[in-house]
Nucleic acid binder design. Structure first.
Lengths: 206, 206
DNA sequence: TAATCTATACCGACTAGTTGGTACAGTATG
DNA sequence: CATACTGTACCAACTAGTCGGTATAGATTA
């Protein structure tokens, strides 16, 4: 099938993502990316004109997958419940299941990039920020609705603002990966995301 | 002052730390470390026999600073309050002040290492794990005391276990750095750590 | 329908520069 | 005289990136 290059392109992206999560894309040489994709140097430079371009294409690729995943979770959660707080709690549970405990290098490409100055271009940063913001805005909106509902039932102000709670989702999400790697225990990711969910519930429930 | 080599050694460590937080130590060349330390190649290899050895010495160095800092916070906090929950909350506040909002590259060396496979040796991992564990164990102990105290006053079980709450400190701590870098806003670190504190309080208070 | 042309997809040898690391002769200090 | 360097020259291995060439599929032409 010499006509369709998307197959090769995707192989390159897959290989690069694997290496990026294992050792960081900056530390991975093009030769390693090429070897992983089982192609040749010529093929690589046919699809990407530089390593920087690959790096940017990779964040774009991952950001798109992340966006789709979030959309799927939102859709699923809207089907499962009408209560905004329950929707957020369910979304946390679904996110916790995202990472299989057997995964060898659980991690987030965004975090990997942001600790590697060379790849952390303004363009890459904006892509990550945009993804974070979109998801945080969804959570924040739901939590504001939940706060309003709780208010009608005669509740006092929240201990933490919906905006900070929403952002904390990503703090815990990203931090949980660091924890999992540091303690060498992939199951910690799941546990921490679920702990965040329980904490969220506690802030609203009482 | 040719008798004391610790000065030069510290200059190398400082230069390496700066570069590690800016672009990752793997991406930083020895020539850059040497230039930053304002020494020569000869001097570098007099003190460290390889880049790997520098990397390990650097985690050790940072881990020691971190340990000292934690000890200082614990001491300060024990002076300020006798209540275990208040002690933890105060410790969070002091930690939030750790990072100046003007800092150019706020971040954690441990997180930087753990996303750069080459540096993430088992030795380095254990050093990070040990630091994390020591601090989490302190928080967990305090929270268990706090839970017991609250129990005497007729409280029900906690929404989240002290162990998970204690680990979440590092999740939020590490995640907050990623957030600060992604949103390009160093003040987010402080806000997230304080939000964690408020959430902790909410879990215990009601 | 065979010959020619064109674009896409890919190969792999090659190069110029950088990397971590070595070697070693010299110097200043306590 | 040992310690703590400076300075420079050097090396093999690796790096990103280049370049001329090839194979194939499909459209155009004779």
């Amino acid at each position: 099938m010499p006509r369709d290059g998307t197959h090769t392109r995707n192989r390159i992206l897959d290989s690069a993502l694997l290496l990026a999560l294992e050792k960081g894309l900056a530390a991975a040489s093009l030769d390693q990316v090429i070897e992983g994709a089982e192609i040749t140097k010529g093929a690589f430079f046919y699809h990407f004109k530089s390593k920087d371009e690959l790096a940017l294409a990779l964040v774009r690729h991952v950001a798109e997958l992340d966006r789709q995943n979030h959309a799927k979770i939102v859709q699923r959660v809207e089907e499962l419940s009408r209560d905004p707080l329950q929707q957020v709690l369910l979304a946390c549970s679904l996110t916790a299941d995202l990472v299989a405990p057997s995964e060898p290098n659980p991690g987030c490409l965004f975090a990997s990039y942001c600790y590697q100055g060379d790849l952390w271009s303004e363009a890459a940063r904006k892509i990550c920020e945009s993804n974070f913001h979109e998801q945080a805005a969804w959570i924040e909106g739901k939590l504001k609705q939940a706060a309003k509902l709780a208010g009608r039932k005669g509740k006092s102000a929240l201990a933490v603002s919906p905006a900070q709670l929403a952002m904390m989702f990503h703090s815990v999400f990203e931090g949980a990966f660091v924890l999992a790697r540091t303690y060498n225990d992939a199951s910690l990711f799941r546990k921490q995301v679920l702990a965040y969910r329980d904490m969220l519930e506690a802030v609203f429930k009482p």
